[in-house]
Design a protein around this nucleic acid. Structure first.
Lengths: 240, 240
DNA sequence: CAGGGCTGTTGCAAACCGTTACGCGACGTT
DNA sequence: AACGTCGCGTAACGGTTTGCAACAGCCCTG
């Protein structure tokens, strides 16, 4: 019992489960009426912020690609996510005085900096902003939970498949090709994110290529059979 | 390089990294001036809410013990967390129309029900409530990230040790004993939460008992050597 | 009180993944 | 152009975790 699949849910419920609801984009123009919103450029390899640094702004990715990584007290490190255009960064720090994770640019990036106490004050006057902020926080939770499911229950190769589909679907939302893209991160970062070792990621990618689902050459990836990939990955990542 | 442990951080930063900042408790009395806050009783084994059900309230645990579990489209399930007095539930649903996870009571529980659109409106008028809400969201993210680190980098036995310390520290915050408590969940739930199998949890507990760190009898747990447990667990969970 | 189901425990064999090691190619520097 | 470095791919080995199976104890029910 209790094996109630999502397919058993009513149609309305399924729609509500879709992860990327159409939310109004953050309107930078409007925000600038309430606070100083500045642009920041971060070169590849540079930190946007580091754990321990004072927290004084949220960041909205305008262009580029970044990763965030968490460091435990005893030195274990794990990549907690990858961010691209439209993603809001730093929300996990709300309520604290200093950042709890590192944010590194994987390619030259352009970031909108939203000063933190002001942006919270502004949300008191702009209900739409408040909704956007709390939704972003909630989405972050859902994203993490989703990866807990992936990491916790899928074997290595399926995690890698799910990862590729996730990246592809996010690129597609931005208007890029979902079938052919360049990974901005190395094998080690993928491995850390998926709680694997880089060799295992390599093996998984090689095998996915052997069975004809993808084609890989260094960081260049082509998804040759998305339906098969999806079923292989437990259908976690949704992609048109 | 880049092995910057937290101990290298300035003192001010370390303080900000502490997970449980003193935040004002949610004042139910005050909230009732702005919206109808009702109490709900949930018996052991009953659902507080289920994935797919319409989302119309946040829930503040007043007494009892619950678990939340996520279900993927293909039927894989994972426990995403355990909730006790003072924990806010349902925040991951903000921005959606229906719940994305199940919440089940593991013992008879009493819950405050905070109707959702109203509580968001109220936070526009009560800045302190807004701060409390967004902090709760952010804390949830940090909690999940912390477990991603645990699950992603620690072997089975250390995960179990970290789990026991986490439960203990949360019980201690509520005034219960951190050294002697009754687990409210079965081995399977612990295993699911830690991304292990229930046999592995059993074996880990047995071994921790063999080496004298704890004592276990079915669901009754005594922590005999908390310092050793902590070092064993990679010092993740903090406990007095 | 007996029976049945659920939960927890333990042993053994097998699979998976991490570890270690090494080779290869691209890139940047001297 | 030679060199060193870094990222990536491959292979063999070993260890941890898992899966299977059998069993014991508790609780609920009849």
């Amino acid at each position: 019992m209790q094996t109630s699949l999502a397919s058993h849910l009513p149609e309305s419920a399924r729609a509500a489960l879709m992860p990327f609801e159409a939310l109004p984009e953050l309107d930078i123009q409007q925000l600038q009426h309430h606070m100083p919103v500045t642009q920041r450029k971060v070169k590849a390899g540079q930190y946007l912020y580091r754990a321990g640094q004072p927290f004084h702004a949220l960041y909205l990715v305008h262009a580029g690609f970044l990763k965030t990584s968490e460091l435990s007290e005893d030195g274990r490190e794990q990549v907690t996510g990858f961010r691209m255009r439209g993603d809001l960064m730093g929300v996990e720090t709300i309520g604290l005085k200093a950042h709890t994770c590192d944010a590194v640019a994987l390619e030259d990036s352009v970031i909108w900096e939203l000063p933190y106490p002001p942006v919270l004050d502004a949300s008191l006057h702009i209900p739409e902003l408040q909704l956007r902020l709390s939704s972003a926080l909630a989405e972050e939770i859902r994203r993490d939970r989703s990866w807990m499911l992936t990491i916790g229950t899928l074997p290595a190769e399926q995690r890698v498949a799910a990862f590729l589909l996730d990246i592809a679907s996010r690129l597609a939302r931005l208007g890029f090709s979902a079938r052919h893209f360049i990974l901005r991160m190395g094998r080690a970062d993928i491995a850390s994110f998926l709680a694997l070792k880089h060799e295992t990621v390599t093996r998984a990618l090689s095998h996915l290529e052997d069975i004809g689902y993808i084609s890989v050459q260094r960081r260049e990836v082509k998804l040759l059979d998305i339906p098969m990939l999806r079923s292989h990955a437990g259908m976690r990542a949704m992609l048109a």
